[in-house]
């Protein structure tokens, strides 16, 4: 193929950069769309970048009781979000260096670690809302964990490995594989997991003002300045990472770069952005069509996700699936 070929290492760098740079853009685009759906004009698409820039310029205020955990939390979380894109097919259909460093479970653990340090940092702040948020997010994180585990099992049973690259490749290999019930169930279950993990309705009203039902957002309340910027940026990246896994591993693993050519890799970036935005549209529509569940009913939601994931494994393991 004509044109410049990149080395795998360079492509891997591209993958990480794509997530880091584009994540706020994705958030901004979705926010804008939501505003439109609700009949508002909505914030500018680039607004998250301005927010981040503003926050980085501000000074950092620490609560009285806060120690080093409070400072380290956002930094560690941000680093975690930098690592995960190495493991998943962001831009390429073929595996890249360090891509086999961890499997889906490994990626899940790293995301979990990020959530944990943020919760820890929030807990150390001593603010009641932040602590409420961190305890809730840990509780629901634990409830969503079994579903995540069963999704991993499904992937492992389909591909005999649990590497995300191969699940995507398996779906691409034949349409029979892609419409296979186990695969569909796992995909829907993962969709619900993402819904819960990114703090969307029906689990939580995201980007809301103070309220009793808030979970993830409450954890950020006590942070300020660059630390808050890192947290916000981190959650945008987390959202984009989860969307990427959803589309590139489960739902639509097509349109990824098949070669190392620069043009192919560059082309994959807008395609990824388009697919992620497509997911965002679905999420925004769900956000506007359903009401939030009562806090104590969230277990029903989690049970639903678990049902799908468990059925996927059962169908696969006991049937031909």
């Amino acid at each position: 193929m004509a044109g410049i070929d990149l080395t795998p290492v360079q492509i891997q760098v591209f993958q990480v950069l794509a997530i880091v740079v584009l994540a706020p853009l994705l958030s901004g685009a979705i926010e804008h769309l939501e505003g439109r759906l609700q009949g508002r004009r909505g914030p500018r698409i680039l607004q998250p970048y301005y927010d981040l820039a503003k926050l980085f310029r501000k000074e950092t205020l620490l609560p009285e009781d806060a120690g080093w955990v409070f400072v380290a939390g956002p930094l560690v979380a941000f680093m975690c979000y930098l690592v995960v894109p190495l493991l998943i097919p962001v831009l390429t259909a073929y595996p890249l260096p360090l891509g086999f460093m961890g499997d889906i479970l490994g990626g899940g653990f790293i995301l979990g670690l990020a959530g944990f340090v943020v919760a820890l940092a929030a807990a150390q702040s001593g603010g009641p809302y932040a602590q409420l948020g961190s305890s809730r997010s840990m509780t629901f994180g634990a409830l969503i964990e079994p579903s995540m585990l069963f999704i991993t099992f499904t992937v492992a049973l389909v591909t005999t490995t649990d590497l995300p690259y191969f699940e995507a490749a398996a779906s691409r290999a034949s349409l029979g594989q892609a419409v296979r019930p186990a695969h569909l169930l796992a995909a829907v279950a993962f969709f619900l997991v993402v819904l819960g993990d990114t703090g969307r309705i029906p689990v939580e009203t995201h980007a809301s003002t103070l309220e009793f039902g808030m979970i993830d957002e409450a954890r950020l309340l006590e942070h300020s300045g660059p630390l808050l910027a890192l947290l916000k940026w981190g959650s945008a990246m987390k959202q984009m990472i989860l969307y990427t896994i959803l589309v590139n591993v489960f739902v639509a693993p097509w349109g990824l770069a098949g070669s190392r050519a620069l043009s192919a890799v560059l082309l994959a970036i807008p395609v990824l952005m388009g697919k992620a935005f497509g997911v965002g549209v679905v999420f925004a529509v769900i956000d506007n069509s359903f009401s939030k569940l009562r806090l104590f009913k969230i277990t029903e939601f989690m049970a639903g996700a678990f049902l799908l994931a468990a059925l996927a494994v059962v169908v696969l393991y006991l049937g031909s699936g």
Binding site: A170, G176, Q177, V179
Partner: peptide, 16 residues
């Protein structure tokens, strides 16, 4: 990527 078993046929996938 390693070769996969082709998986079930489209008919059996859909009916399942």
């Amino acid at each position: 990527a390693p070769a996969f078993s082709p998986g079930p046929s489209r008919y059996s996938s859909v009916t399942e």
